[in-house]
Write a protein that binds this DNA or RNA. Sequence first.
DNA 1: CGGCAAATTGATAGCTATCAAGGTTAGTGG
DNA 2: CCACTAACCTTGATAGCTATCAATTTGCCG
Lengths: 215, 215
Amino acid sequence: MPDAGAGLVNRLVTQRVHLLRGEHLYRSNEAVRHRLYAIQSGQFKTYHLSSDGEQRITGFQFVGDFLGLDAIGLTYYRNSTMALSDVVVCEFSHARLVDAAQHCEALALHLRELLSKQLSLAQTTTLLLANRADQKLSAFLLALPSKRADDEPDRQVLEINMSRADIGAYLGLADTTVSRTLSRFQRQGYLALRHHQLAITDAAGLRAIASRNAP
Amino acid sequence: MPDAGAGLVNRLVTQRVHLLRGEHLYRSNEAVRHRLYAIQSGQFKTYHLSSDGEQRITGFQFVGDFLGLDAIGLTYYRNSTMALSDVVVCEFSHARLVDAAQHCEALALHLRELLSKQLSLAQTTTLLLANRADQKLSAFLLALPSKRADDEPDRQVLEINMSRADIGAYLGLADTTVSRTLSRFQRQGYLALRHHQLAITDAAGLRAIASRNAP
DNA sequence: CGGCAAATTGATAGCTATCAAGGTTAGTGG
DNA sequence: CCACTAACCTTGATAGCTATCAATTTGCCG
């Protein structure tokens, strides 16, 4: 959030919600509670249930991302949002936020830009439609929020709390293909993976894979 | 647009823009003109240019869809928008729209809902990430806006102004695969295709293809 | 420690990208 | 109005990739 009304925004936070790994913030077909949520720590996944019971992952959300923006005009939630790790979110009342925005043009502008940015981002996600598995996966890994290692500039560390099956459902790949490709990336020295910790050791190499059409 | 201020909205239209097939409404990296556009007739495609010059289709837009919503907070456009047929769009000034929304809560609500709906839709597009070509293509065809034939209830007629290559770039398929799959759908009696006119003759069959995971 | 879910890895069949060759459509210029 | 050209579409053959099935291994939680 911008400086323009940090105190104001803090007064709009109705509560801080703690969830454990596996718990839902809301589920599909529940009545919309007209709340917005900002992720303070942890990771989420949002998904639809298809008619045959399969989960279709629509996205992963990280620290700083907002949840609930896509439910603003709705009566029932259209997707389910599950914590992939223990998480903390700030809860806002949408009505009070709108009310405040009426009297603070800076806040209103920020809200519009936030929605527009989310929209732009959701559309860009289409970049994941590359046709080869290594392209999808390298683009996916590079898009994840990561922390640069202090000592090595090209080494980026990040947390992968989602399962291989989740990644596959998101990218349109079988979980075995995700596992295979990650293993191959390790053998080829692009990354190191241990438990839920992933370190990208050759970001330039991954970018090359993600962007090349023909080898 | 809702009844709440139809006259008001009409006064916000700065002009009607006519474009020919192949012309651009705006291009990537152009300065944002702070306009919103509502499609009155025709079809558009929006795309990114990847580093190697390939077009990545981010979406197709049809009558009633809005353009420019994803550029609200930006200085430069992040995608290019091209007319796939002769088109007519209504141009709005974003600033004047925001100004009017300040004094008309119904309009403000409608705008928020519009953005939220677009966001929800952009996320749902992830459904196109199915792993088989016939699933992608059947889901794609069913999502296109169509007119029901008056005489036959199960027959839906729609216009396909985009090329096979465009569809392929959107779904993550080669253009030959799109062509092949469409041909097969015709042989199997799911649809009839002639020039840019497409008729879905067995929507239920296509839905079955789109939703089944294993045959 | 035991049971279970997740991850890895191998073998195989099926699908799709690629390369290549006509055929068709649409748009251009005479 | 017609011929021509370029882009688009279709279709075939082949190689490469991925889904699937299956068997282990690893890690997690009670």
